[in-house]
Nucleic acid binder design. Structure first.
Lengths: 233, 233
DNA sequence: CGTTGCCTTGACTAGTTTCAAGATCAGTGG
DNA sequence: CCACTGATCTTGAAACTAGTCAAGGCAACG
């Protein structure tokens, strides 16, 4: 099928599958099933038994976790080409978070056993996966450092810069994030409240550095945000 | 040599090396070099080129990271049997943190290339390492959730409970952490200041739940700390 | 065209940090 | 063995950041 071939070609180029033998790759692809995830719906729920692991082909997801007392945080944003829901690789049986589509998305899913089998037979895949998880660990540590040592304004600046670098698109007079992000989302990414985020963005807007909108944000002066993010003191 | 055999037997039992073939394991052990790390000295420095990876045989380390503006955080505490300094697995060439011995410690070191070689040939090792990193990622996310949503007192309670569960030893009328931990250390683990930590511990001491000391802490009522850590609101 | 969801803003409050000073303890060298 | 010194810890008071509470505006959607 045409779409299948397109997807296959796309997937083939992903770093996780680099260095994998053609035969193995083909076998992998033949076992994956595609699924469309409409905006605002979840691929699976936190706590569910992890029987499948996923690859985001197209679209954008946010992975949220809810704490015992109902507070929510966004663990990360999933970009096209990212794997997610690989609970097994983390040595657990249930999904630790809930991935929600920020825009209509399309994912590929495989049975979790395939992952262990394939990794046992494809050391490259295992090493690649490990490095992917490793870089995520690195990112998590950066975030811990930020939340621990920086003030809210710096953290918000950082979060926005990160989103821009992952999904920034040029727009009239600036750069815009390619998918809808609410103030609440930014708050959950930075460990603060939507009120504080709103105040900060209003302030920036007053200075002309950004232009706010409903679930959107146009960055006019990225350099200035960088300064805010990096400012010592 | 006698000590060498003892170490080998100890190492053999570690989860990371479980399922590894005897021959491979022996070869691995024959390439490792032992090193004594005196209290308060660093095994290596953050930013150095990562040419070796390590296993903590005996003792206790804290891994710190310094931010651009000089603020410090403790990334984690390394317990006997833990691997550390495996930068390669994270896909980077330099060490992301500095491990400092909290007590006189002993480590085993291997050339970093051995790690990739061995993982390429021992899928089990690769999967084990991946799961270890995965569980660390899990822990990092928990910490992000805590710092983002909980108040300092809860976070301090959590940190102490974690230290107790990793290295708690019975003492007269309570449990004590097996190695020296300063108020500053706890502050760097929880993203606060030593002043606030001191106040909180003083308060607990007033209630009779703990007993403070210089770089030490006797927990008299662990259950109460649990309550504090888990208290909603 | 009303209802719902998202965003903004002001006023108030509270938890933490910052600043400052002093107490206490451990180790060191005379 | 004891005074000295540096590190660690405690505590008070002031300053402030960010959260909470509350109300209203605005835009999208059915």
């Amino acid at each position: 099928m045409a779409t299948e071939t397109i997807i296959k070609t796309l997937v083939r180029k992903l770093p996780v599958f680099s260095g994998m033998e053609e035969a193995a790759f083909n076998q992998l692809m033949s076992h994956g099933t595609q699924r469309i995830v409409p905006k605002n719906s979840a691929v699976f729920q936190q706590g569910e038994e992890a029987d499948l692991f996923y690859l985001l082909v197209q679209g954008r997801l946010k992975v949220t976790q809810v704490t015992a007392d109902g507070q929510q945080i966004i663990v990360r944003v999933v970009n096209p080409g990212d794997l997610f829901g690989f609970a097994m690789a983390l040595g657990r049986k249930d999904y630790p978070g809930t991935p929600v589509a920020l825009v209509d998305s399309s994912v590929l899913a495989w049975p979790m056993e395939m992952m262990s089998d394939f990794m046992a037979r494809n050391p490259t895949l295992a090493v690649n996966t490990m490095q992917m998880i490793g870089s995520r660990l690195d990112a998590a540590h950066s975030r811990i450092r930020e939340i621990s040592t920086q003030e809210v304004e710096q953290r918000v600046a950082h979060a926005i810069i990160r989103l821009i670098s992952e999904a920034g698109v040029k727009d009239e007079g600036g750069i815009r994030i390619d998918f809808p992000v609410s103030r609440q989302d930014i708050a959950e990414l930075t460990g603060t409240t939507l009120h504080t985020v709103s105040r900060i963005i209003s302030h920036w807007q007053g200075k002309g550095w950004v232009e706010g909108g409903r679930k959107s944000l146009l960055v006019r002066d990225l350099h200035r945000l960088q300064q805010i993010a990096d400012s010592d003191i």
